[in-house]
Design a protein around this nucleic acid. Structure first.
Lengths: 355, 355
DNA sequence: CTTAGCACTCATTAAGGGAGAGTGCTAACA
DNA sequence: TGTTAGCACTCTCCCTTAATGAGTGCTAAG
């Protein structure tokens, strides 16, 4: 059944009001404050219909009405006035620039911006790199038997891993091995590292016959074994306590339940990875998979590198979320993230000085 | 005025009970449950004295009594049965080992252990390195004009900074510069980097006359300018929401006030740095400097490298904290942190292969 | 010095009773 | 047929009142 123009108008008014005030909306409020030129009785009739259709519920008989998840869904799908990329775009761009040099700081900064501007709890995932290609490998001596492996991807993203070797390798050999590995592995995807590639490369390398074979072998094993670590995604939050601003969570137990869920990075990351990778995804209330967040909405945006999604930013708040503002904000943010990432972390032809 | 043996016994019983239950303790409870062989009336007389002496207060006339900060101070200073290094020491050691290779992960892990074992909110500061000496410097090409600077200190701690250069430097030159910088700067304290040292070193280097002077100059300026960044301390939390378990914070506003304070890493770090650097420091209630935590206790332990304090771990909770357990736990933890750090991150004679 | 006894205090809880917000329904009106 | 005024009804919220009970301080006797 299609909703009449008037029903839509009333529904929108109710949703707006509820998002603002957080209290059940009565017919009189709508009739008066939103100058509909319609009496409260008429509004009541319409509201009664809207309730029957599943867009509204009454907390109790003599309360006003509250929008359902279905109503919010309708709202974000088009009922709210569509939002352009927000007015804060330039400001966001400026703040993002401040931490552009290092990817993780950049992402951390993104989360901070989002919660500062929206007053919800924000989060940001660092890039997944399994599809990234290696560009440069550098081994750095740390201590006698510890070696730092620095990986630079073609996206200019940097990863560190420390290895424990069974015996020490002198500096000049480390440099030679670094050059060798860079030459052999550059252009190879991180996700390919842990395959039979190792044997193949070892074969090639053995044919050159260097004097540090057995060490190189051990090194390769370690390198391959820890390859899956590079996929490890970090999650940053900001504004966890913002949740406590909303009357929905004035009950400590409710607040605790939600905060504990969010604070547990592992399960929350899992939940986020499950979210479909659309440019902008909005999950409202019971659309969420996990019980603890079925009264929340999660808005996430992706960021891409060369067209491939590598991470997500977003925020979580009560279903009564200021979607309009939030969406405008998150669009601005992800627009700027994408722009800056692709300016600063994009694939570049390998420098001729390599190898 | 000295407290009589009996007064001390009663006070200890009250504190224990209040730490356990979180509710004002009455004379009857003490007389009965702690089998003192003393009537409640006698206990009342003693409690009245203790109140006059500032060890107890009554929330209201007909409530039992609650220990004051002064009472907790007495308690931790010796009233509670002294704690040995706890029984979980081995378990802690095992868990710490899992993330031993990289300092920041190690510290993050420490915070996790602390909150998991105590159910309070824990925190851990990453090492301050201004007193650390450089051991190795490696420049790694990232993109055309971006260079990664990897610093390894004599403590085997690794720091990364990405620079933007005005022009590109080929790989082989980067290696030569790296070697040069390692040779010139190893043994130098990080805190010395931003001084006139630069000019001195440049002087020396100029005398060697390489072909890339102006780039090196730029690089040195960047390196020196960002030197203060190496001191930047990171703060990790764990179990933020544990605070919500305690009835003291069943009021959302109180919880929010505290959580916001703790969540603000900058000001909280500042607060922590102000704490005197004893092996074990306990700040009870109003002993804390900041208004927002004057109803909390903060227990911190330091960790050292070669006898120098480089960081802190600790936890925050209501003044009604289970000091006995907490102190035992944190002693175990810091003991193991110190042990492992000094095994894995201790100064080592520079390898002969350097330079 | 200790303790039994007792009056007193005060938080907590439950019950009762407006007040107010909002509804549903009906009947009249355009 | 849709709209609206009117009204009874419902239910929450808040205030008051009263009962309960935990715990105290004081006194007087042991």
């Amino acid at each position: 059944m299609e909703l009449s123009e008037r029903k839509l108008k009333i529904l929108r008014a109710i949703i707006s009001s509820y998002i603002q005030e957080g209290e059940a909306v009565g017919s009189r409020t709508i009739s008066k404050k939103h100058n509909m030129g319609i009496s409260s009785a008429t509004v009541r009739n319409e509201m009664s219909d809207l309730e029957e259709l599943g867009y509204l519920i009454q907390p109790h008989t003599s309360a006003g009405r509250v929008p359902t998840d279905k109503a919010y869904r309708l709202y974000v799908n088009g009922l709210m006035k569509s939002t352009s990329v927000g007015k804060y775009s330039e400001q966001i761009n400026r703040i993002l620039q401040e931490e552009i040099n290092e990817m993780n700081s950049f992402i951390k900064n993104s989360a901070r911006i989002l919660s500062n501007f929206t007053h919800y709890t924000s989060f940001a995932m660092t890039p997944q790199l399994k599809e990234s290609k290696l560009k440069h490998i550098q081994l750095v001596p740390v201590s006698d038997k510890k070696i730092l492996l620095v990986i630079v991807t073609e996206n200019n993203i940097i990863k560190n891993v420390v290895f424990n070797m069974s015996s020490s390798i002198p500096q000049d050999q480390l440099n030679r091995i670094s050059n060798l590995l860079t030459a052999k592995l550059s252009g190879v995807k991180l996700s390919m590292l842990n395959r039979e590639l190792k044997n193949e490369i070892m074969h090639e390398i053995y044919s050159i016959r260097e004097s540090f074979d057995e060490k190189l072998d051990e090194l390769m094993v370690l390198l391959m074994n820890t390859a899956n670590q590079y996929e490890k995604v970090e999650l940053y939050y900001n504004g966890l306590t913002n949740i406590l601003n909303y009357p929905e969570y004035s009950d400590t137990n409710k607040a605790k339940e939600l905060l504990s869920f969010v604070e547990d990075k592992e399960s929350f990351t899992k939940a986020l990875l499950n979210v479909e990778g659309k440019d902008l995804s909005i999950l409202i209330g019971k659309e969420n998979e996990f019980e603890q967040i079925k009264e929340c909405s999660i808005v996430t945006a992706t960021y891409k590198l060369n067209g491939i999604i590598i991470g997500k930013v977003g925020l979580i708040g009560p279903t009564r979320m200021d979607y309009k503002n939030v969406i405008s904000m998150i669009k601005s943010l992800s627009f700027n993230i994408n722009k800056l990432i692709n300016e600063n972390y994009t694939d570049i032809k390998r420098s001729e000085t390599d190898g």
